[in-house]
Design a protein around this nucleic acid. Structure first.
Length: 214
DNA sequence: ATATCGATTATCT
DNA sequence: GATAATCGATATG
């Protein structure tokens, strides 16, 4: 195989801001198969493929954190697209979103599950998980709270982070992989607008948080 | 395999 | 003072 193809497949390039300046449902669908990268101290790079996301609309979506308007917590979602919105939930967990739509509009996409690609040992340490076999890998990043813990994502560290720059410690890139078998279901854990099918996942991927949805 | 429940706190009413 | 875009443990079939 030509050398150029090898390096092309390995190279991850950041998604441009324009990618996020659209309807969150479109962004969510197209984020499947992309790569979330966490650069940690010591030059270690943690990477994981996005396999499950949910869209939250900037308008007319009662399940969205922005439904009631601008607050201190949700202000990043009202800002320019491509930035991290991190919130704390249930007294225990952080969840990661990326802001969508143009500046002033408040849509976003929640990251629900990732497939670990590199830095698995670091993720296991952050999660407090002992790795004894391939089956333990799903405990690392299958779930919005879990993936944040695996990548050490917190509100104080990462809220507002620019996810379009490879210079950021957290950013999103494309390695050329084409997502296949996209499925939609209602969103998990929401009590309002529970009928809207705005959860997107890679059908059959073992790292999805809830593969068997009723 | 599915159901239920407790933990724990930032945020908003 | 109530709620929440969750997780892990426990119970039961």
């Amino acid at each position: 195989m030509p050398k150029s193809q090898i390096s092309a497949a390995a190279r991850i390039h950041p998604l441009a801001r324009a990618f996020y300046a659209r309807d969150p449902r479109r962004v969510a669908r197209e984020l499947l198969g992309k790569i979330l990268t966490r650069q940690v101290a010591g030059g270690v790079r943690l990477t994981a493929r996005i396999v499950e996301v949910e869209a939250y609309l900037g308008k007319n979506d009662p399940a969205a954190h922005t439904f009631g308007g601008l607050t201190a917590r949700n202000s990043v979602l009202f800002g320019p697209p491509g930035h991290a919105y991190v919130y704390f939930i249930y007294g225990n967990h952080y969840c990661l979103n990326v802001s969508c739509e143009p500046d002033g509009c408040a849509g976003g996409v929640l990251f629900r599950a990732l497939e670990p690609l590199s830095g698995v040992e670091e993720m296991a340490r952050a999660r407090g998980v002992e790795l004894n076999g391939p089956k333990d890998l799903v405990k690392l990043t299958a779930g919005p709270g879990r993936l944040c813990e695996a990548l050490s994502i917190t509100r104080s560290r990462d809220n507002g982070c620019d996810l379009t720059s490879a210079k950021s410690s957290l950013w999103i890139g494309d390695d050329g992989t084409r997502a296949r078998g996209i499925r939609t279901t209602p969103r998990i854990g929401v009590t309002k607008a529970a009928d809207k099918p705005w959860r997107y996942l890679l059908n059959g991927n073992p790292f999805v948080s809830r593969p068997h949805f009723k």
